[in-house]
């Protein structure tokens, strides 16, 4: 079977149940669907004869086609349905063996088949709903394993594809998917250089995300932290002093409040530009408001460390 190819270590525990063994398939399926009812059905299914598998398969195919048309069905209805079906579940090992590795499709089919066996006309819709609600393995989706494998011949329905698309979009371009309102920047990466210097590694990435120049962010950081520093060869910021990631994050947060978010509409989609008279202006791209922001002032900084020879 195909699952032999998959190293068991990569799979989640629930999937590590062996599929090759006809007897254990049931357990794995039950876990995948996360439904207690299904489990119950399984045990009974095992005991059942596999004689009418043929017909069931045919019916299932029919329903599979039908199911495509139906988009939405409430899950609650689905759940109501399931226990009723448990009694006369048949179909089992034989059918599953035909299937290739992924447990998801198997369960879906089995469920359809079950419903079909139950003889409900309404079954098709429910089966589809069940398929939709199924938890997808995020890893599989991202890495293209399981059903997402290139050479996998399994038909993938539209909803699965769509959800995969959004999962990928979410992970790669969080700002494109407008699902969440909160403004996110990647967490600052802080490394220690020697004993008393901190390297802020991803400053360019962060400032690009905020649409601000590195220099401006750097200036602000130095002013707030009351220290100085430099930029190294690979555009990382070297800050004098020991700082933790949390501390840098706090300062960045303040920077965002002060220089990035629009005060009127709270949108982070703004631009910082230098106005006519050496004042900085933040222009909002979503509401069009424009406001001046204070220039970054270092303020008083005390003499720290060794004092140089007093002049004068």
């Amino acid at each position: 079977m195909a699952d032999a190819a998959d190293p068991p270590t990569e799979r989640k525990p629930r999937k590590s149940v062996a599929f090759s063994d006809g007897a254990t398939i049931v357990d794995s399926d039950g876990q995948v669907t996360e439904s207690a009812d299904m489990n119950g059905g399984k045990s009974s299914a095992e005991s059942h004869a596999t004689g009418d598998d043929k017909e069931v398969d045919e019916v299932t195919d029919m329903f599979a086609n039908l199911a495509k048309k139906k988009k939405k069905k409430s899950k609650s209805k689905d759940e109501d349905e399931a226990p009723a079906d448990d009694g006369d579940v048949d179909l089992s090992a034989l059918k599953k063996k035909k299937k290739s590795k992924k447990p998801k499709a198997e369960t879906a089919d089995e469920f359809e088949a079950k419903l079909a066996a139950a003889g409900g006309d309404k079954a098709d819709g429910e089966a589809e709903a069940e398929e939709e609600e199924k938890p997808f393995e995020a890893e599989d989706m991202l890495k293209g394993k399981g059903i997402w494998q290139h050479e996998s011949t399994q038909p993938i329905n539209y909803n699965l594809l769509l959800s995969r698309f959004f999962t990928l979009l979410h992970s790669h371009h969080p700002d494109l998917s407008s699902g969440s309102k909160s403004y996110k920047i990647p967490p600052p990466q802080c490394l220690r250089e020697g004993n008393k210097k901190t390297i802020f590694a991803n400053i360019s990435e962060i400032s690009k995300r905020m649409k601000r120049s590195d220099e401006h962010v750097t200036q602000f950081l130095f002013a707030e932290l009351g220290t100085s520093g430099s930029v190294d060869g690979s555009r990382r910021l070297v800050i004098k002093g020991r700082f933790q990631q949390k501390q840098i994050e706090n300062v960045l947060r303040r920077y965002i409040v002060e220089y990035v978010t629009c005060k009127t509409c709270r949108s982070p989609d703004t631009e910082l530009s230098k106005g006519e008279n050496r004042l900085y202006f933040v222009t909002c791209n979503s509401c069009g408001s424009r406001r001046s922001v204070t220039a970054i002032k270092t303020g008083f900084s005390a003499q720290v460390g060794k004092r140089r020879r007093q002049q004068g």
């Binding site: 008393k196 932290l225 009351g226 220290t227 020991r242 303020g299 008083f300 720290v304 460390g305």
Partner: peptide, 9 residues
């Protein structure tokens, strides 16, 4: 009124 902090050794 600005309250600042500076790191020493």
């Amino acid at each position: 009124i600005h309250i600042r902090i500076q790191q020493r050794n």
